[in-house]
Design a binder for these strands. Sequence first.
RNA 1: GCGCCCGUAGCUCAAUGGUUAGAGCAGGGGACUCAUAAUCCCUUGGUUGCAGGUUCGAGUCCUGCCGGGCGUACCA
Length: 558
Amino acid sequence: MTRRFLITGALPYSNGRLHVGHIAGAYLPADIYVRYLRSRGDDVLFVCGSDDNGVAITLSAQKEGLTPPEIVAKYNASQQRAFEGLGIDFDVFGGTHTPDYVERHTELSQEFFKSIYDKGYFTKRTTSQLYDVQADRFLPDRYVTGTCYLCGAEGAYGDQCEACGHSMDPLKLKDPKSVFSGTTPEVRETTHWYLRLDEFQEPLAQWLEEREGWRPTVLNFAKGQIKLGLPERAMTRDLDWGIPVPLDDPDAAGKVLYVWFDAPIGYVSFSSTLLERQGGSPSDYEEWWKSPDCKIVHFIGEDNIVFHAIIWPAMLMAEGTYQLPHQVVANSFLNIKFPGKDEEKISKSRGTAVWIEDYLTEFDPDPLRYYLTAIAPENARTAYDPDEFLVRNDSELLATLGNFVNRNITFAHKYFDGKVPEVGARSEVDEKLLRLCGEQAEKVAEQLEGFHFKAGLTEVMALARAGNLYLDEKKPWSQRKEDLAACGTTINVCLQVVRALMVLMQPFLPFSARKCLEMLQLDESALQWDQATTELPAGTALADPTMLFKKLQEQEKK
RNA sequence: GCGCCCGUAGCUCAAUGGUUAGAGCAGGGGACUCAUAAUCCCUUGGUUGCAGGUUCGAGUCCUGCCGGGCGUACCA
């Protein structure tokens, strides 16, 4: 029976380019999973897009001398280039304030909000907040500085004093200044709508308790937050950039939805836009989002756990007609280790990032996909090391996998007229290796079904290693001189392994799998998972060998 | 300060409380030559951060300590 999956990648904020951390965290594992599912014949919708709303967009825009729509367009395009270059192949890459998507997004977000509103899960509340008269805007806590009223340190932020670590009430800060204009803000009253998360504390706790197969990091964090208690959270903001609050109430005038309220709805609205574009009805998204036979899997980074494992499910519970996520897969952050320096966090401002667009000017996508999967921060933080990237490309990816494919294709060309040689009587050694293809296919599948991408990749490499070992045992370069038929059998068996490897590597290394496909002169359907053990007939003509991977380290001559 | 997470070989990572803690890479030695000097075999390497405790049995559970990280801008 065909399974159905709706897979999402966390919406990247459209005020910056993508770096290796983004990819390792959410998008690469999501893409691997999707490619795997598709090769199994499952029905998959793979959805992503940029997160275009919120105060940070307006600030970034200001900083770059652009309008919000301009900065959104700029980075949405940049991100799409990066994804495309890496072969991260979404069915749709929308944007919550991007032309072609914003209309549907607005509509669905407002509907969603109103639905929760009608059910009484919002509290309308008026509070005092600091207001920057000159900049004509309310100040988020983080955008106020002043003197800490607890320790007296200067430069405390409205949400926290970095000197003593205490959280701050921005209204109590001494000598407050707006980060925007530097002027002294005044206190004004403002009204917002707060989501009553407390109403969902019990249902959420219960729901999380029943989750199976979730990573402990996700569950522990979410359960811990719930145990601390879920305060009401304002779901509206005083801002002129975003989705207007859809209420007739005069207090709602000029206000927008909190960016984290509308962002996850982007998954839904992009789905809707996509399905309509494919000739369906805009409401077709309900077959994915509201049908229990479809499994929804969110891939995110660790900073998103609170939203995807608590707030978004709470929103869904409040709205009432959607199903809850089947899985929330979160990776930890990826640190970076530059030569001669200590491991450190990826930081845009300190320039300690490896940008995807930069990477792609120099290297092919698959080596990065390989390396980022091999070091994926699935359980704990790991570090990206540019030198190690080169080493692992040369000594693992190229030497073990690429070389195995290459030596067999080349051998067939040299001694068997560029064709798959006839297979004679197979020995137990031959049979064992052929069996291993199926066994490894099962192991890889099992790991991927459980979201263990790193372990899955290890099993792919294990097959390549077994192939190399087999070659060394059979020594076809010697067999050739003594018994050409036996030699043919050996190469035939190896080419079966090449075919299996092609199928198994496809989710991880799609570009290289395609090269294999071309060398074996097979069509697309050969990449289906169950084709891993389909025998490549003797006599099949092979295309000229092409290198799957390039050597990247400087060769020290000698 | 408080809360949470983490600490396993030089590096990246594994080990439902159950034999002697395992792989890959890197290092050392050897074999081979089809292949991108790739491959294959052998090998070095660990007081599982430290100290206690529970248990027939602890890398795994508990307590304390040390170290790092997160909770806090840019950020997955």
